[in-house]
Amino acid sequence: MIIRCFQNLNQSSLHLYRGICTSRPSSSVFDKIKNFLLAEERENFDRDNIRKAHQKDNVDEKEWALIYRDVGASRTFYMTAAFVPSFIVGSSIFAFDVNSNSPGNRFDFVQKLVTDSEELGVLIALPSVALAVVFACLIRVQQLRLIRIYQNKNDAEQFMAIRSKFIVKQHKELFRRDETTGFYFADDQTDGVRVAMHFLLGNIQIGSRKSMIIDDMFRANNYRSYMLNETSVPPRL
């Protein structure tokens, strides 16, 4: 009887082990981040996406129509909003630890960075400059790129842009159609020059502030052309 009990126990354990092994593993944080960055989007102006945009921005859907939605800008905003403060905090900890503590009392990661820097010598300037350039580009794009644009249903001349503020926040910027101007680059310029100009100067100006938009992110081309004063016929809202 004792032997049978052990056999039954072993069989139960085996079934349990198989059940655990064949169960679907839970997604990790990295999988969620990957899905956030790479997941296929539904139609950019899908009804559910429009509703979520109005809720997120706290904008009245009865008064404002969503005419521009840049999913890439939204994603890079959150990435930059997480990276920049983390980089600043990490750099501050590094500088404080190096200046305040002896090598034996420093954090492990700080001491490792110091050791690697000493081994690289003057070559440390290369990754430092590259990191500074990436950091500056992220901040510049964060300042220029518009995330969403709404148009007033009661006054087609009035618009509202959702853009970055202080890198980690989003805010609403009201403007009128007569305040907008599009930048048009010469046809003989190379694609590389045009991209560089977009990053440095943007491709539209709202009032005195330069911004950057992507034409394909508008609901339709007539919304873009009307906002930039290229046509005089207001689109259907």
Rank of each mutant, 00 (worst) to 15 (best):
F77Y: 12
E40D: 08
A156E: 03
V141Y: 12
S102L: 08
A186P: 04
I124Y: 13
V114H: 02
E230P: 04
V84Y: 09
W64Y: 07
I206L: 03
V84R: 07
Q170C: 10
F135M: 07
E61I: 08
I204Y: 10
A156S: 13
S23F: 10
S117N: 12
S12V: 03
Q11E: 11
M79G: 12
D116R: 06
Y150N: 12
L174N: 10
D187P: 05
L146W: 01
W64F: 11
V195K: 15
R209I: 05
R42S: 05
K62D: 15
Q170M: 14
N35C: 09
D187V: 08
L120G: 05
R177P: 00
S74I: 15
C5F: 10
M227A: 06
L16S: 00
P85L: 04
D60N: 15
A161T: 12
P127Y: 01
Q7E: 09
L201D: 10
V71L: 11
I214P: 01
N221D: 11
T180L: 13
R69T: 00
R140I: 06
R42Y: 04
T76S: 15
N8L: 13
V133D: 01
V168M: 07
S100G: 00
K153G: 02
F77M: 04
V193M: 02
K32A: 06
F36C: 01
R176N: 09
N35R: 14
S12R: 00
A39F: 08
M160E: 08
L138Y: 09
L200M: 15
R236Y: 09
Q170R: 14
S86K: 03
D155M: 00
C21Q: 04
G182P: 11
L237V: 13
C21F: 02
F77K: 06
I139F: 09
H198N: 15
F6R: 08
Q143A: 06
R219W: 04
A95W: 01
E61L: 07
N8K: 00
N99L: 15
N10G: 05
K62N: 15
F83Y: 13
F166N: 06
N152R: 11
Q142I: 01
I3H: 00
M197F: 11
S164F: 07
S86W: 07
N105I: 00
Q158S: 15
V29H: 05
D31S: 10
